[in-house]
Amino acid sequence: MGNILVFAEHQKGKFPKTTLVALQAGKEAAQKFGGSCLAAVLGAEIDGLAQEAAKYGVAKVLAVSNPALAHYLADSYAAVLSQLVTAYDISLLLATSTAVGKDLLPRVAARLGVAMASDVVAINTDGTFKRPMYAGNVIATVSLTGPIKVISVRGTAFDAAQPDGQAPIERVRVELKETKMEFVEFNETKSDRPTLTEARIVVSGGRGLKSGENFTTYLEPLVDALGAAMGASRAAVDAGFVPNDLQVGQTGKVVAPELYFAIGISGAIQHLAGMKDSKVIVAINKDPEAPIFNVADYGLVADLFKAVPELTEEIKKLKGE
């Protein structure tokens, strides 16, 4: 077995929790299969980030600094990673299946002529992987043939790596051909609330909310009383109530907070696939037969337009104590 390379994605000069999860998965894989776990940090000015990555117990940080890498672009980032895989005897390349991870890793795999397993939830000692298919209705055990394996891991399936070491940093120079792609702009969703995939509490609304205005009137006060992140079911996104980046589910974000509220959400399998690993699940729905109650730890059959304002008041009372 050769080495393991973790692509350490950064956002706004920091490593989000999803990156720490990838580092942890990489370290666990190194313990199981041997080889060293390396971390790759790509960008324009990344000295600080490379030093930060070096704290998380990897064997070495590969720092690739180049003005052309200032913004993530699939073609140039894939070119760099494929070069690193070849140069550092990598037999397992991994990243978390974030928007960047999903966009990037298949491109690297195809450049290297190898297959990839997406959204891995377990790395088994026999070299197989577990991954969901059919919107989470199936957990498949899969293997990859060939000297190089590429996997993306689900951000909720591993713990976040803890800072517990100091690894050397190697500055790597790479060949970069001119990219055909151009970054134009990034419009950040402005929010004072925590990030969906990092929040301790998530409150999601579904089609039962009936309108975007009701998300504002009924759901948001509860979200803020709890200091939670707001999410939504695909049905609510489809109906145009809220933007797609709030979508929790197989085709949206996968979350596993300590506490998850599903409000006016029936519990289609596609939604369950995105939240069923939450520690405590609360469902509020007026339909006692709604499938969401099958996964809820606490279910309340009630009209959400009455229950949610009441709940908001109770939470405020509790916090005021």
């Binding site: 190898v114 199936v138 055990t141 990859l144 069923k276 279910g299």
Partner: peptide, 17 residues
């Protein structure tokens, strides 16, 4: 190069209250 060896249904969560 990717082989699916086995499929399992997802683990069932115990019903809550």
């Amino acid at each position: 190069l990717l082989t699916v060896h086995k499929m399992d249904p997802p683990a069932k969560k115990a019903a809550g209250k």
